[in-house]
Write a protein that binds this DNA or RNA. Sequence first.
DNA 1: TCTCTTTATGCAACCGTGTTGCGCCATAGA
DNA 2: TCTATGGCGCAACACGGTTGCATAAAGAGA
Lengths: 162, 162
Amino acid sequence: MPARSQQATTDVAESLIRGTGARLTMARVQILKILLDAGRALSHNEVEDKLGRSYPIDRVTVYRVLDWLTESGLAHRITDSDRVWRFNAERGGHSGEHPHFTCTCCANTICLEETPAAKTPKLPTGYRSQHVDVTVRGLCDECARANHNPSAHLRARKHKSR
Amino acid sequence: MPARSQQATTDVAESLIRGTGARLTMARVQILKILLDAGRALSHNEVEDKLGRSYPIDRVTVYRVLDWLTESGLAHRITDSDRVWRFNAERGGHSGEHPHFTCTCCANTICLEETPAAKTPKLPTGYRSQHVDVTVRGLCDECARANHNPSAHLRARKHKSR
DNA sequence: TCTCTTTATGCAACCGTGTTGCGCCATAGA
DNA sequence: TCTATGGCGCAACACGGTTGCATAAAGAGA
């Protein structure tokens, strides 16, 4: 990634954080920048990895910053089936209800466009719906192609996925 | 629950297990029976609790039996947002793709009827869908009613839910 | 009914993800 | 520059789930 765009993302991150009225700290800027640049949802571990190279931050702080970003609406949290939370931030912000895609091979997770007709399934009497969570599982572009010539692309997964 | 129905469930559990061709063990029978009687998805912890009274089984064994039940198709596993797996077994068996409901108050999880038109959201080019996971979050009948006269019904939740 | 093979179980120790408590340090307002 | 407040790092912990290994039990065959 070119230095120019790196700088640009830093500026975006800083102004987003300033916009919340909260303190501007290096940890917040770095982590938000990483999320903004990722283009997909990152787990705590992935964030820590990316930080590690240039700006190591205590893992507890990473957790706290990710929580803070979620609370301030600068990122949103996705629960994955592997018991890991992933965080996604987008420049334009994000609508509340939208489906996600998770690759069953490499675990990459992205947000999908809002579906017009994501209607709530029929509930038993008395039950009330607050939120409908739609997650598509399948193969991402990269993994789908790698599946044709195997052994090409296989990132480690620790827990067997369902 | 009347003794008669208890016995009946045990018989059902035994014949289901025998049907797989695998060994019939007490642990498998007891755990499957508990799942069949529950009428909702149970976590590992809940299963252990219910066992505890009459037939204590090592937690590792419970995990292994639950895994085995899932593999043999006698139960299915639901991933909840609180990073806990829940297991559901139904006498008639279950279709592969169906939505779930999780109560944001008491965490009870049930399976919903298959929706006719749970169509896959639009995916980026190259992406392939294998499975669409739909989870409705909201209040179950009991909690929705309890919400009218608060402090009536509030079971503990360890992790804050999103 | 007894023996033997296979497979389940129990125990102990472990792993990964996430949380809590507390003292210290940096941010930002004066 | 000074100061209060809130953020950070460290250590220890909580919880769900897994692994390795020795022992016990299921069930097939004699």
